[in-house]
């Protein structure tokens, strides 16, 4: 494992901690898209089917479990916690995420490394992760004002993707057999989706003003 990959994982972990902190500290999930969170929970459940079949390292196993547990806990909290769920911006979170699900699954059936149950679900999770942030970005754009913790949550998620790209570039040059084209191309698409958000995040940071996205 290289430093970029590790930094990426830590950014990912930080983004989840920031989100949990926001929900627990403010007892509110306003500005957070339940649809994106549901998609992420599904991404981890579909991808980590290999928990039962392949052992990579203790680090990998623990991180996989942390991602599965934290993402399902967030979804559970937004749906079931009687205080938190009242702050959910349901009327703004209207992105039709079932289309993303169907498209990702269809693509996974067509483009995968092997036509097996596990490989199809792995490819599905990669495609779904690439687009899972869309309902969240649309929700932020609709609500206009973005609170600090929500902005930081999306920022850390974007940073995680950026570090993974550096990781792939590093691996491409240092490893002889590194070819994970499905993950790399989907990763590039996913990171590109954050470009707009990063631009406005940078502007607000530079001017020291509240993050505001144009309608």
């Amino acid at each position: 494992m290289n430093i970029f990959r590790f930094a990426g994982d830590m950014m990912h972990l930080t983004s989840i901690l920031v989100l949990l902190l926001k929900i627990y500290a403010t007892k509110s999930c306003s500005g957070i898209s339940l649809k994106t969170q549901e998609l992420y929970a599904l991404v981890f459940l579909a991808r980590y089917l290999d928990l039962f079949t392949d052992f990579i390292s203790v680090y990998n196993t623990i991180m996989k479990l942390v991602f599965i547990v934290s993402s399902t806990a967030i979804v559970w909290c937004m749906k079931r916690d009687r205080v938190v769920r009242r702050s959910y911006d349901k009327q703004l979170d209207t992105f039709r995420h079932y289309f993303l699900l169907a498209a990702s699954f269809a693509l996974a059936l067509l483009v995968n490394e092997k036509f097996t149950f596990q490989e199809i679900f792995w490819a599905f999770s990669i495609y779904l992760e690439a687009v899972a942030i869309l309902p969240q970005l649309v929700l932020l754009q609709r609500s206009g004002n973005v609170d600090n913790l929500t902005g930081q949550y999306v920022f850390f998620l974007g940073a995680y993707r950026a570090f993974y790209i550096l990781n792939w570039i590093y691996r491409y040059f240092t490893e002889t057999h590194f070819s994970r084209w499905i993950a790399c191309i989907s990763g590039l698409v996913q990171t590109a989706l954050y470009a707009d958000f990063f631009y406005y995040y940078y502007i607000s940071w530079k001017n020291n003003t509240k993050l505001k996205l144009p309608a």
């Binding site: 990579i56 092997k114 993950a183």
Partner: peptide, 10 residues
Amino acid sequence: CFEVPPKDEL
């Protein structure tokens, strides 16, 4: 034969 490398990333 096409061998798929282990998936070591998260």
